[in-house]
Simulated assay, not measured.
Amino acid sequence: MEQASLQFRVVLLGAGRVAAQLAPALARAGHSVVAVWSRTLASAQQVAQGIGATAFGGSAPDLRSIPADVYLLCVPDDAAPAVLAAAKWPRHALVAHTSGALPLALFAACPAIRGGVFYPLQTFSANRAVDWATVPLCLEAADDADLALLTALARSLSQQVLVVATAQRQQLHVAAVFACNFTNHLLGIADALLAEANLPTDLLTPLVRETIDKALSQPPFTVQTGPAIRHDVATLLAHRRLLQAHPAWEELYGRLSASIQAQAAG
């Protein structure tokens, strides 16, 4: 992470988990978060609290009297097109969305503004601090000057700043869903199964840590273990019988086991 040599004025649109983490990080890096918008004023006020930002709400943000170097669009993906269309932007404003899935071409429908991408590759949760210095920030912009501005802003937060085009970023986002969201769901199933057996969930902690450490130190497919890769049919059938009270989990167990075997078979 570089010490911010430039202090940027930033407006955040959205007051969800990304904005809630970005706002204090930007302030700590020496930037001015001049305003936070959300459809719900109370949500905007919560994010703006303590950083000297103005909070405002409503269905269609009017930003023409709020000058900034960059407007960061931190709303859910399905809301982004409507917010872009409804907002009243300063002419030639630089607006960057924070999505892994949305294309840069999203901004083609708004020719009066300049578009960019400022995607933090991290999972964000309430009441859980993020070390922004370690968060990869993936950037994209059609204009070199806009990309330079986004790069300077990103480098003031993170040690990992990359220029990633839309197609690569979208595939990265799919990979992140497998690595993060699906993994978390599987851990949730494991917790539930342990609870049904009246066993403490921390029994799995050493196993989970070793699994992640091993997968991060070498290609994960090469270190696969378990009954599926061994073609241990008796154990696989026994496990599926134990899961019969949870048909969706039983089906998932079968599909994942088949995927492991197919991958190993090449």
Rank of each mutant, 00 (worst) to 15 (best):
A148S: 13
A258R: 10
R230C: 12
K88M: 10
A25Q: 06
R28E: 11
L204W: 00
V11I: 13
L41P: 06
R230I: 13
F107L: 04
L193E: 14
R39D: 04
A105Q: 07
L256H: 09
V75E: 09
L193V: 10
A152P: 00
V75F: 06
L63E: 11
A234Q: 15
V83H: 08
A25Y: 04
V36L: 10
R17V: 14
T54R: 15
A29H: 00
A154G: 07
T201Q: 14
S38K: 07
E210N: 09
E251H: 15
A152C: 11
M1A: 15
T151E: 05
F124Y: 09
T222Y: 01
A234T: 14
G30E: 03
R241G: 02
L216M: 10
H31Y: 03
L63Y: 09
V11R: 05
S38W: 09
A152N: 14
T98M: 08
T211V: 04
G254P: 10
V11H: 02
A129V: 11
V47E: 01
V130M: 02
A109K: 11
V83M: 15
G14Q: 05
E250H: 08
V177E: 04
Y71C: 06
A101W: 00
G50P: 01
L104K: 00
T123Y: 03
G266W: 11
V208M: 07
K214P: 02
R91L: 14
G116I: 03
H97S: 08
A133V: 12
L106E: 02
A55M: 08
Q263C: 07
F118C: 04
Q244L: 11
S125P: 00
R169E: 03
F178W: 15
I260N: 00
V75S: 01
V135I: 09
P247Q: 12
D143S: 13
R39L: 06
L137F: 01
